[in-house]
C-alpha cells in the first residue's frame, strides 16, 4: 500500500513538467502580441511601437521561448509565479485568496453533493420503482438539465429579492455559501445520486446480501454492507469532481460575484495576463493529479482487496 502511494505520488513529477511545458507552449501560441494586450489592459490610451519595445524588454518577453520557459520553471519550483502584468502584484498573492475562496466553495459543494447524493441514492434504492424514486429522479433530471446561470439568477431573485432571506452575492458569512452551493450541487447531485442508487440496486441482488438476510442479519447491518460496497465507484468519481468543481465554478462565480479562481482566470485570459494563466493551469492540473491519488487511497481504504494488491 505504501509503495503504491509513493509510486503514485512520484508520477506527479513528470506530469508537472509535461503540463507546464504544454501550457506554456499553448499560451504563447496566441497570435496577438502579448505586450500590446498588456498595455491595453493597463489602460494606455494609444500604444506606440516605442512603448511596445520598451515594455517587451521590461517584461523579458524579448527573450527566446525556451529561455523564458526555463526561467519561469525555475522560479515556479521556488514558488515564485512572477508578477501579474496587469496589477504588478505577485501572482502568488493574487492566486492564494482566490484559490481559497474557490476551494471553500468546492468543498461546501462537495459536502452537500455527497450528503444529498447518498441520502437520495439510498432512499431511491430502498423505494425502487415507487413514487418517491420516480419523482426524485424526474425532478433532479429536469433541474440538473437547466443551465446554472439561469437557476442562479432565479434563485437570487426568489431567495434574495422576493423573500429577502439571503445575500445576492459576494462573500463574508456562511449565508453567502447557501445559494451558490445550492445551485452548484443540484447539477452534481443529479449525476451522483443515480450512480449510488444504481450501485446499491446491483449490490442488493448480490449473493452476500441474500445470504446475510437468510442468516437473519439485521436489516440495518445489511444496508450498511450494501452501502459500503456501493460507495466505492462514487468515491473515485467524487474525488475527481473536486478539481472539476474548482475548474468549473466560473459561471457560478460570475453569477454570485464569488472572488474565486474562475473569475480571476477569465479576466486574466481576456487581459493575456500570462503569469496568472500559467499558474492557474499548473495549479489545477496538479489538483487533478493529487485528488486522483487521494481517490485511489480512499478506495483502497474502503476495499481491503485493493490494499493487498
Amino acid at each position: 500500500m505504501r509503495n503504491y502511494i509513493i509510486r503514485r505520488i512520484l508520477t506527479i513529477i513528470p506530469m508537472f513538467f509535461i503540463i507546464s511545458f504544454i501550457s506554456f507552449v499553448l499560451i504563447n501560441l496566441s497570435p496577438s502580441d502579448p505586450v500590446e494586450i498588456i498595455l491595453r489592459a493597463n489602460g494606455v490610451p494609444v500604444v506606440t511601437e516605442e512603448l511596445i519595445e520598451e515594455t517587451k524588454i521590461e517584461l523579458g518577453l524579448d527573450q527566446p521561448f525556451l529561455v523564458r520557459y526555463v526561467n519561469w520553471l525555475n522560479d515556479v519550483i521556488h514558488l515564485d509565479f512572477g508578477k501579474s502584468y496587469v496589477t504588478q502584484q505577485p501572482v502568488f498573492k493574487m492566486i492564494s485568496p482566490a484559490f481559497g475562496y474557490t476551494m471553500q466553495l468546492a468543498l461546501a459543494n462537495t459536502v452537500v453533493t455527497i450528503m444529498l447524493s447518498i441520502f437520495l441514492g439510498i432512499i431511491c434504492a430502498q423505494f425502487e420503482g415507487r413514487m418517491i424514486d420516480r419523482g426524485t429522479r424526474s425532478f433532479l433530471f429536469i433541474i440538473s438539465a437547466m443551465p446554472a446561470f439561469w437557476i442562479g439568477t432565479l434563485a437570487i431573485w426568489f431567495f434574495s429579492v422576493k423573500l429577502n432571506l439571503l445575500p445576492t452575492s459576494g462573500v463574508g458569512s456562511w449565508t453567502n455559501f447557501v445559494l451558490p452551493t445550492m445551485v452548484m450541487s443540484i447539477g452534481y447531485c443529479g449525476f451522483y445520486f443515480r450512480m449510488i442508487r444504481n450501485s446499491m440496486l446491483e449490490n442488493m441482488n448480490e449473493n452476500y446480501v441474500v445470504y446475510a438476510r437468510s442468516c437473519g442479519v439485521k436489516e440495518k447491518v445489511v444496508v450498511k454492507h450494501i452501502f459500503r460496497n456501493s460507495i466505492q465507484t462514487a468515491v473515485a468519481a467524487f474525488c475527481m469532481a473536486i478539481p472539476g468543481m474548482m475548474a468549473g465554478t466560473v459561471v457560478i462565480e460570475n453569477v454570485f460575484a464569488w472572488p474565486g479562481l474562475g473569475r480571476l482566470c477569465v479576466s486574466s485570459i481576456f487581459n493575456r495576463d500570462l503569469p496568472i494563466i500559467q499558474a492557474y493551469v499548473l495549479i489545477l492540473a496538479l489538483s487533478y493529479c493529487l485528488f486522483n491519488i487521494f481517490g485511489d487511497i480512499v478506495t483502497a481504504v474502503l476495499n481491503p482487496k485493493l490494499r493487498k494488491a
Binding site: 439568477t153 445575500p167 445576492t168 452575492s169 454570485f256
Partner: peptide, 11 residues
Amino acid sequence: QTAQLALQNGE
C-alpha cells in the same frame, strides 16, 4: 442581472 438584483435588494 446580479447587479440589478443587488440594487433591488438594497445591497
